[in-house]
């Protein structure tokens, strides 16, 4: 069974614009299921899915779990901690054990870049990357795209700036590739110590100052600043980060147009984003969370071999 996406969803970089658009289009009818009183359709009945989380995650894990359950899949959650061999079973052994249990899909979150790729190469089941190290977080990228598309219609020519710790952000990479493929203009803004040295080769604009980014952008995707970046010496203090790079209401009010605000969560209020922005009228942060379930349902459905035109019909089979 070959899906329109191939066996796995590991990253947005290798996908075509048509494949990304297909996922977003497929997500549209799935949005409605979550609005029903009985939020369940039998689409993936009999499919077994393992959610393999080597890193703590609440939002992404719960979102995947709801997506799976609303499609009637049988799911198991495995929370493993630690990625190195010193902490127990190796990833290759984990992979072989999963394979031996004849599961259909694995959703993996792992602290090492390439872990999802590693798993996908070694098992026949479909692998969905729920975030690997500082590489990609493709379903987060997709839900960001869906949220932007809900607001702007077409992303072609729209200006989106990704703000903050791009160097360590898997969300940033998935956003950059996804946005570029759909024709958006992409920029990044943050301290140079938190941008890859090769950022200029990504084909994105780079703003040194958040004020310039806000003046340019139609939307900002504000990344979480991990608190350990300060102790590791990338920035002097969270206080100064907020003063220089924080997305504040005062800065947004000086923009020539309303700038849409996205944040992948969890937020550090008062660091990268102020509360009155996060909770303000330009924020679509909770829409992102809602769209996350629909996008993940679409990905699960497509990887299971569902034909896109049947997604509309599939939801009709639900018990109302």
């Amino acid at each position: 069974m070959t899906s329109a996406l191939g066996k796995d969803l590991l990253a947005l970089e290798p996908l075509s614009a048509a494949q990304i658009t297909l996922i977003l289009d497929t997500a549209e009818p799935f949005k409605e299921i979550s609005e029903r009183a009985i939020k369940k359709v039998p689409t993936l009945r009999g499919q077994t899915i393992v959610n393999l989380f080597f890193e703590a995650s609440t939002r992404t894990r719960v979102s995947f779990e709801f997506a799976e359950k609303r499609l009637s899949a049988d799911t198991v959650n495995v929370a493993a901690s630690g990625s190195s061999v010193s902490k127990g079973e190796t990833l290759v052994d984990t992979a072989r054990n999963l394979e031996a249990m004849r599961i259909d899909m694995v959703v993996i979150r792992h602290g090492a870049s390439g872990a999802a790729h590693f798993l996908a190469e070694r098992i026949e089941s479909s692998v969905i990357n729920a975030g690997d190290g500082t590489h990609e977080h493709p379903t987060q990228g997709l839900l960001d795209l869906l949220t932007l598309r809900d607001h702007f219609g077409d992303l072609a020519g729209k200006r989106v700036c990704i703000c903050g710790d791009v160097l360590h952000s898997r969300v940033a990479r998935s956003n950059i590739w996804g946005l570029k493929k759909l024709g958006a203009e992409v920029a990044v803004c943050g301290p140079r110590s938190l941008l890859p040295t090769a950022i200029d080769e990504f084909g994105v604009a780079v703003f040194a100052r958040i004020e310039e980014a806000i003046a340019w952008a139609d939307a900002l995707n504000v990344l979480r600043l991990q608190l350990e970046r300060m102790t590791a010496g990338y920035i002097p203090s969270l206080r100064e980060y907020n003063r220089v790079f924080g997305v504040t209401r005062e800065r947004l009010e000086r923009a020539p147009r309303d700038v849409l605000i996205l944040h992948p969560g969890p937020m550090n209020r008062g660091v990268e984003i102020d509360s009155d922005v996060a909770d303000g009228p330009q924020s679509v942060i909770l829409d992102q969370v809602t769209n996350g379930v629909a996008v993940r349902m679409a990905v699960l459905y497509l990887l299971a071999g569902g034909r896109p035109e049947l997604a509309e019909a599939a939801k009709g089979g639900g018990e109302r």
Binding site: E13, S113, G114, T134, H135, E136, R170, T197, A198, E201
Partner: peptide, 15 residues
């Protein structure tokens, strides 16, 4: 190596 490939793959580079 620290460069475009390391940045794309999300691997920490050695300049």
């Amino acid at each position: 190596h620290e460069g475009l490939v390391s940045a794309r793959l999300g691997l920490k580079g050695i300049p």
